[in-house]
Design a protein around this nucleic acid. Structure first.
Lengths: 340, 340
DNA sequence: CGAATTTATGGAAACGTTTCCATGATATTA
DNA sequence: TAATATCATGGAAACGTTTCCATAAATTCG
């Protein structure tokens, strides 16, 4: 074994195979115009030398990178992790690489940051849960750069995006509680600057209205998706003069906090208070009692968005579409009829 | 605004600034040999055109990519997320990009996969929790390719690696429980094929021995880091004829399962049974009762490993070092003296 | 069997940078 | 002031590919 076999290029392969370097390239790209025996000989040399094409040179020549950029707000939550997983597996199918960017990296000039990746760093961009998308939307549009939004509520102008039926999911969950016989249902919101939080609240309200129930603003607590918000929210709700018999938290983490709050008041779940969440994180099934919730197809969101982006990369003129994946009500042990 | 300003290259900048393209390059790279006024003029044009250097061309010329590859087993757990966060922020400081790879992407020829990234795709590699590292260790070494292992117990040959003091952490936790007066302490292991699990078990055993306690194999339950393992393990331990008064789970997730198991038996925590975990995931502090645990500096691990890799990238001949970051015992409400 | 057509291959240009070398201009020194 | 050192800049080569064009060989067909 040689000590430094790092410098094996296409020309070295050509030399050893006794052909022109153009021919080697043709072999690599499965060009039809290569004699079978030549192809075989070249492939043998490639194998022997362990040659692998330099991506930079290839990218420079082809004007593309075979890399897709993914911009995420953070990495802590498994929520993002699951979406990333879906993206990753779909990219792998298409032999594309994933370059990861986090929003907080460039707090000042996010727009300039995006501009730089647009210029030859990646071939397309997936924006997960973008917060101030308006800042760089212009840059992307101007460069005609392929991108897709994940879990972001459009801001008027139609953008390619993938989301879930937040409103419908919240509606179903509320409807389910109402069907059990609950009439006072508390609601803990997510971060209200996010479209998905607003939609969930809207779904909750719609279901109540559909059942002819009056508005009860005291039953809505504004949270921010953190477990402690769930605890605080449920505490506030349960300490009301006329406390709710069921609590709907806008995500599972807050539902867990709500469970803690109920328990610390000596309330049994679900006999004395029902609790339902949103997301269906892996832990939801493992809690005691296991948590009823609204499942979001996170991984599938990643996959779908990636497929959409790939379509855009092939054909940039393609019509911008907004895809809404269905949520699903998962009934477990944390919900029951009141006084059950 | 032009319709397609995508093609602004260094030569266009040079033309508009009335200089040779070499001069523009010098400006870009802060070469000292440029007259201040020329520099200013060129910068103005760069600004105006919104020029940004093509990474591929730059990489091709410089024989490097300014991209660091990170190979992770999966993305679901927040454990990986925190390490990634540390890596990411340290890379950002050094203006490097992060390319993410997941192990399961290439189930068959992992080694060939690594070989390909070694060839010009990235400048260095961070391997998080690698499972069958031996397969491609050879490739990396042969190419003299810079890499650093994160949370992997060396397999004999000395490799640059960053880990935590698993043994010491487990020792401290056990010692703490012993100090409270506990004498029967149950232990739930992690996945025993991982070095860190073995080290934690070892720390537990050492502490018991240091206190002159006899071996009690029935108090050790083999788990696999999942919450359900914690539930099953704690159930088994608590159903022993002589159940332990404290349970030490090898991670927080299993500790949560153990808490559920204790509660479902009507046991109060910590009065009737103490429970302690490992990791200090964000949720640990929010549980009721809040979970005592051994904190791992995950983010710092990512940072430290990145720094180590950067050193190796600068100077490939650097001595392989193994860095162990200290764990820290976090006492919360889930542990107390027996019968307290 | 010669002309036309297809096919395999060699050679060269191009992608957008960086860096080396050369050159002319300016500053320094004897 | 002449010789020399310093400096800014232009020009060109090189990085490793892909692809176009040309050419030579092989095949088809009248």
């Amino acid at each position: 074994m040689k000590t430094s076999p790092s410098k094996i290029t296409i020309v070295e392969v050509a030399r050893q195979a006794g052909v022109a370097l153009g021919t080697v390239s043709r072999v690599l790209n499965n060009d039809a115009h290569v004699a079978p025996e030549t192809r075989e000989r070249v492939n043998a040399v490639i194998q022997e030398l362990g040659y692998v094409a330099n991506r930079q040179a290839r990218g420079l020549r082809n004007m593309k990178t075979n890399v897709v950029g993914v911009l995420v707000p953070d990495l802590a939550s498994s929520y993002i992790g699951q979406i990333l997983h879906g993206i990753d597996s779909e990219l792998a199918l298409n032999r594309l690489e994933l370059m990861l960017f986090t929003t907080h990296r460039a707090p000042v000039k996010e727009a300039a940051y995006v501009a730089s990746m647009v210029q030859g760093m990646v071939d397309g961009l997936l924006l997960v849960l973008p917060r101030n998308f308006e800042d760089y939307m212009g840059t992307l549009a101007r460069h005609n750069f392929p991108f897709t939004l994940i879990d972001h509520q459009g801001t008027g102008s139609p953008c390619p995006a993938v989301g879930t039926t937040n409103r419908q999911g919240a509606y179903s969950a509320t409807e389910y509680l109402l069907g059990l016989g609950h009439r006072r249902i508390g609601f803990i919101t997510g971060s209200m600057e996010l479209g998905c939080s607003q939609e969930r609240l809207d779904g909750y309200h719609s279901a109540l209205r559909a059942f002819g129930l009056p508005d009860a603003p005291e039953l809505v607590y504004e949270g921010d998706f953190r477990q402690t918000d769930g605890y605080a929210g449920a505490s506030a709700l349960l300490d009301l003069p006329e406390p709710p018999g069921a609590i709907f938290a806008s995500n599972d983490l807050m539902a867990m906090g709500a469970m803690d709050a109920a328990r610390s008041r000596g309330l049994r779940i679900p006999e004395q208070v029902s609790i339902i969440g949103f997301d269906d994180i892996p832990q939801a099934a493992m809690l005691r009692p296991s948590l009823s919730t609204v499942q979001q197809p996170l991984e599938e969101m990643g996959r779908a968005a990636t497929r959409m982006l790939l379509g855009l990369m092939k054909n940039p003129q393609e019509q911008a579409a907004r895809l809404e994946l269905p949520t699903r009500l998962i009934v477990r042990d944390s919900t029951a009829a009141p006084g059950g």
